[in-house]
Design a protein around this nucleic acid. Structure first.
Lengths: 242, 242
DNA sequence: CGCTGGTTGCGTACTACATACACAACTAGC
DNA sequence: GCTAGTTGTGTATGTAGTACGCAACCAGCG
């Protein structure tokens, strides 16, 4: 079967299904216990990487479209946060048409996909372990990348990630990451490593604990993490949002 | 001459000139010394008010389009800040076509102007006195409104203003309004009234002065405001941005 | 010209929060 | 039982935010 068939089918109905000249890109952050990671994918026959993105259907809001894109790629059902609209003059244009061509679909010269595209940036904090990656048919690779060592990216996706990181760091400074990025049960030092990975610098153990507890963003469990050849750490879980 | 002629001319070339299904709305804030005001306009034959807005031309970025809209309406040349993209399902649609009809332009049923429109919200802080209002041909009224007493608005423009106000209040809490909203020379109590109008509550005179001075957002002038039947207040000006 | 009302400019005490650091408790391995 | 390594808890210090008192000053009036 023609590997480009699904893409061709998508392209055949694109003018009927989605808002033209508009796209959205999701910056999906996860945490593997060591570093902050971002979910990137590589389209067939392309060597640059891209953010998971998509278009907005006529029968769904921007927010709903972002949720759908996230769900299609990760099987997750959760809210995303819109953080910026990217509308520079050179967005799209020269780079999109060759990309589609590499995947086996010829975009006519006059088509909007060959022209300028405005993109809305969305941000998601997800539980690493709960993600079930779904490549689909035209994605060759999809994996997590350490945010500090990202591969070459298409279009302005690198700038989009940088902007999302800025937004994230502002939230981290006021301890507003919550436990969205953590596994269900975690220790205090593990949560601290997340904040340190986002902020990019070390924090004081004792002050961090004090702050997190007084803000009530975690709930103490009557369990401990053993087998670490040192004192067992208490386990916590993210407190359900009010 | 047909009063709808300019609008008809605009409509005739709209498909060639601008990105379809996309618009932008500018929330322009000014300060009259008493209350925080927002610039609104009323299109011909409509009874609801609207934000100054427009569409994005193919040869300009989102930011540049926002600057153009602001310049066309106020003759001001300055930056705006993008704060949110509004893309609910019911944006546009039923309300836009009757509005154009009231102004004398029949939008065909299938045209994108009769359908859903995503809008990018921009925010501007301008000097009240420097604004030179320009109505154009299809705007019947254009004036400042106290943000606390706004008229009935079209579409979701009321929610857009609310969101812009939230953004503004966040900035005010960390004294980041600067002097953009003040006249060239102003006293400390006058600046304080601006912050109070934005925040919606009173501030302490002495702490306000201390904070503003230590942040260095104003420059003291060797002049005083006299004729107030009480002690003359020192004049300041906004310090040029670094 | 002195007195008065009202406001501005300046300083000080108090409180809350963030930061810096010390020590005991505990687990696994030998 | 001893040790290495880390976690849990407490306390001291510094810095920023808040509350408030008082003198300086301008215009108007008797």
């Amino acid at each position: 079967m023609d590997p480009a068939a699904p893409l061709k089918k998508f392209f055949a109905t694109i003018d009927r299904d989605v808002i033209p000249h508009l796209s959205l890109d999701c910056v999906v952050f996860g945490f593997d216990g060591e570093a902050l990671e971002v979910l990137l994918l590589r389209w067939r026959n392309l060597d640059r990487w891209s953010l998971p993105g998509g278009f907005v259907r006529w029968d769904e809001s921007l927010d709903a479209a972002a949720q759908r894109v996230l769900r299609e790629r990760t099987s997750l059902t959760q809210n995303l946060e819109q953080f910026h609209a990217f509308g520079a003059l050179d967005r799209g244009g020269s780079e999109v048409r060759p990309a589609f061509a590499a995947m086996g679909v010829e975009v006519p010269e006059g088509h909007w996909l060959a022209g300028r595209i405005v993109s809305i940036g969305y941000l998601a904090l997800v539980r690493f372990a709960e993600v079930r990656l779904n490549l689909g048919n035209v994605v060759e690779e999809c994996r997590w990348w350490d945010v500090r060592a990202r591969p070459p990216m298409t279009l302005d996706h690198d700038a989009i990630i940088t902007r999302a990181l800025d937004t994230l760091r502002i939230r981290a400074r006021s301890f507003q990451l919550g436990g969205a990025l953590m596994p269900e049960k975690f220790t205090m030092p593990e949560l601290q490593r997340l904040y340190e990975a986002v902020l990019g610098h070390a924090l004081d153990r004792r002050n961090f604990r004090k702050k997190v507890l007084e803000l009530g963003i975690v709930e103490q469990l009557p369990e401990f993490r053993t087998g670490q050849r040192h004192r067992a750490a208490n386990l916590y879980r993210a407190r359900p949002e009010d």
